[in-house]
Design a protein around this nucleic acid. Structure first.
Length: 510
RNA sequence: GGCGGUGUAGCUCAGAUGGUUAGAGCACACGGUUCAUACCCGUGGCGUCGGAGGUUCAAAUCCUCCCACCGCUACCA
């Protein structure tokens, strides 16, 4: 009996970059989805990694006086370190310089060549000798190299081509038959109109530099980085290495990507898979960018937000929550510290943090911290209970549509209800009047509600969820499942809740 | 240029198939409460629904034109 599987990926990040909030965003989305599916009982494979080939890496390594491999080994560190700080639960971390990957890329290249989908031709374009790079016409600055300003010349280079043109119709059909393949849907329309305008064959090898995977039958060529990089998704499921694993996890359920690489994931990659006779991924989820003062974040413009600094200042879960709650996946968002602090103070400190804190404080005060048994539920309790145990279903529907933001909004709806319930039930009045039975019921209802909330926020805020679990005096959070969020009266009675520091300290706005 | 999209309260946005006084959150003001992280609960103001025409008993919602902004329009990761 094998459990249902779920395979989610992030882009593999180019090692020439230092990780910024954009990288973190893709990875956090994938992590939340992966965690949610694990909670739901799926066998999950969550893959991330680094893209390490290409001319830019070769050049940077040379400038640092390192070999390209040494350079990559160094540059991969900050990514792994950031993922550790962000609590990213990846199952595998792939590097395109790993032997397992090189083997797969070469085999695939050979394969497609043998079947005639890769052929030798010529790549023509504007070439800058100094930068050793081809530039598309659109990038030239007054007919000169956009990097160094020197004149460019028209050059013809031998290159292998992938016969992508052959798969246009098949791909269009697939997109038509699978409306969820490209999300959000306005991206799907863009891709469709792009394909309809005609897809040319794609150059998939280079001869102007060396740092890449050698074309197996023609050592003058290295495999073009995108062809190389996309294949990581197959290497990661053990393609050509582990048949069972491949069968279990391929096709991928979701490739999480940024909107800048839609073309590669929604056109070239599926065409490569069609050529290989493999099923296509079920979904490519393209998210938007975080902007700073209206400008796109990028290393070259120096417009970046360093996630490490943010984590130190505001905490991992706050950042995770903000990124996933503030904007709907697919749209761009403005990253400002003010907005972050508003979410932190409002949603996290005032609503969630305070709910937990005030509840635990009352249990301490009225019952010496012991989780009380409920008496008969009144109308108020019944309403809150029903809404709470119905929440998991609503959340499930939204999470399956990858609407993480919507799910969070629903959860916060119940948090608001619970805070209101405290006011309505007025436990302090019950305590004053000595209505102990009633008071037990109220506190029990609140604790149960918080228990469910802890479970449901755990994919987005794993650390906070565990802290709450601990404060509720419960143990074994790792064995909790989504089913537990649909049941009531699951708290071990008589265990001791623990008063702790507020989950989210308010941040003063300066 | 071509194709597509957006323009609704100070801010971020909801508002199938046209139909009672256009909504939410945040922010703001006032009131209540005291268990709690000066928190929570309640109440309130504010909008020529980008502009102009049109269809209709009735339009934010349909049509036409205009204005503004955005995305895509092939090889940089």
């Amino acid at each position: 009996m094998s459990k249902e599987s779920f395979y989610v990926t992030t882009p593999i990040y180019y090692v020439n970059d230092v990780p910024h909030i954009g990288h973190a965003y893709s990875t956090i989305i994938a992590d939340a989805l992966a965690r949610y599916k694990r909670l739901s009982g799926y066998d999950v494979l969550f893959l991330t990694g680094t893209d390490e080939h290409g001319q830019k890496v070769e050049k940077a390594a040379r400038e640092w006086g390192r070999t390209p491999q040494e350079h990559c080994d160094l540059m991969v560190g900050p990514f792994k370190e950031l993922w550790r700080k962000l609590n990213i639960s990846y199952d595998d971390f792939i590097r395109t310089t790993q032997e397992r990957h090189i083997m797969v890329v070469q085999a695939i290249f050979q394969n497609l060549f043998s079947q005639g989908d890769i052929y030798k031709g010529f790549y023509e374009g504007w070439y800058c000798i100094h930068e050793e790079t081809f530039y598309p016409e659109s990038q030239l600055v007054e007919g000169c190299c956009p990097e160094c300003g020197r004149p460019v010349e028209w050059l013809k280079e031998e290159s292998y081509y992938f016969r992508s043109s052959k798969y246009q119709d098949q791909l269009l059909q697939y997109i038509k038959d699978n409306p969820d393949f490209i999300r959000p849907d306005f991206r799907r329309n863009e891709v469709v109109s792009f394909i309809k305008s005609g897809v040319q064959d794609t150059s998939v090898s280079r001869t102007t530099f060396k740092w890449g995977i050698p074309v197996p039958f023609d050592p003058d060529h290295v495999v073009y980085v995108w062809f190389d990089a996309l294949i990581n998704y197959l290497t990661g499921v053990g393609y050509l290495q582990d048949e069972e694993k491949t069968a279990k996890f391929w096709p991928a359920d979701i490739h999480v990507i940024g909107k800048d690489i839609i073309r590669f994931h929604c056109v070239i990659w599926p065409m490569m898979l069609l050529s290989l006779g493999l099923p296509l991924p079920k979904q490519v989820l393209a998210h938007g960018f975080w902007m700073l003062g209206g400008a796109k974040m990028s290393k070259s413009t120096g417009v970046v937000v360093d996630p490490n600094r943010l984590i130190e200042e505001f905490g991992t879960d706050s950042i995770r929550y903000f990124l996933l709650r503030e904007i709907a996946v697919g749209l761009d968002g403005e990253f400002t510290q003010d907005a972050l602090i508003r979410r932190l103070n409002g949603d996290l400190a005032n609503d969630l943090g305070n709910l937990v804190h005030r509840t635990v404080a009352m249990v301490m005060k009225y019952f010496d911290g012991e989780v009380p048994e409920a008496g008969e539920l009144g109308a108020l309790e019944t309403v809150l209970r029903d809404e709470t145990i119905g929440l998991a279903l609503v959340v499930d529907e939204l999470m399956n549509k990858t609407d993480i933001r919507g799910a969070l909004m629903q959860i916060w709806g119940v948090i608001a209800r619970a805070n209101k319930y405290v006011d309505e039930a007025a436990p302090w009045a019950l305590a004053r009047e000595g209505q102990t039975e009633q008071l037990r019921t109220v506190m029990h209802t609140l604790l149960e509600t918080i228990r469910v909330i802890a479970i449901l926020i755990s994919p987005v805020m794993p650390e906070t969820a565990e802290k709450i679990w601990d404060q509720l005096g419960q143990s074994n959070f790792t064995s909790v499942t989504i089913e537990d969020a649909r049941k009531w009266d699951m708290l071990a009675l008589g265990t001791a809740v623990k008063k702790a520091a507020p989950l989210f300290p308010r941040v003063e706005i300066k």
